[in-house]
Amino acid sequence: MKRTAIAALLGLGIAGSAMAQSYPAKEIQGVIQWGAGGSTDVVMRAVTPHAEAVLGGKVVMQNVTGGVGAIALNRVADGAADGYTLLMGAENPLLYKVMGLGQKDYSDFTPINIIARGIPIIVARPDAPFNTFPEMIAYIKANPRAVKFGSTGPGGLPSVITAMINAKQPIQVTAVPYDGDGPALTALMGGAIDVMPAVLGAAIENIRAGRMKPIAIMDVAPNAALPNVKPIVETNPEFRQYLPWGPFFGVFVKKGTPADIVAKLQAAYNAGAKNADFQKLMDNRGFLMMNIAGKEADDFLAKWQSTTTWLLQDAGVTKASPAQFNIPKP
């Protein structure tokens, strides 16, 4: 009955408003790009209940992992643009094209909300023979290939940070790959690696406990969570060119979703991200709230993609040049 009614309305050409009025008429599916317990998962599961309250509907969340998140992205892109499937993802899709991981990225989606971004920090094992960024660079230059950097595969945060460093201060290190910053930080505590570029939130509790020491915050301003650690630009202003930079989390729908449904979702997630409990949680984890949508979000994504892809291109990590995909040089 309902389906016929909707079909009839479609025929009359007033489907958009009718659909939006009744939206959500059924459960919405949220596809999370990363595994249960990871940062993206935690952020999405924490913000969504607040958004549900505003939306008046239920979002069923599911982790679809694999292919650096490309499997989840393709699944949402292959679905209908009706607002009933949300992609809950991180920054990685913006690198798919240049890394040869897929033909689609966020340009095939409409951002509902870019919720927050992480702040990169370089940490080292407590007994490493250097305490600051310049000391670290000097030590590495004196001992080429001896220092072991943790990495999470090409395109991951450590590879981007390492590319930034190499662009300004060419160094020779041994990159030991891990499948995520969690295992890499564990290895750092166990002494299997010496240095790890990570997200502040993942390292902060270990820094407080003295199990690793901060070398530099890769940002333009100090962070309230670690007031004594200097941002990199104070010792090495040349990095200002790339900063602020960081991984981010966002909710997306397939491009072509009716505008009023997009607006409804944006309003819901905007309210969800403003929730005081959620903001406190994000603060605790050392994430910087962004809560942006619309043009602001589009601009942010474009700038992020341009900075990062060209950085990786210059570092020789990419499989295809960003120019091939009309990604402008920063």
Binding site: K2, R3, A25, K26, E27, Q29, V60, Q62
Partner: peptide, 18 residues
């Protein structure tokens, strides 16, 4: 367990919402 099984020709989610 909210596993979304393929719906096919049965409009399950609408029925559940109803």
């Amino acid at each position: 367990f909210t596993v979304l099984m393929p719906e096919g020709i049965v409009p399950e989610r609408e029925i559940l919402a109803w």
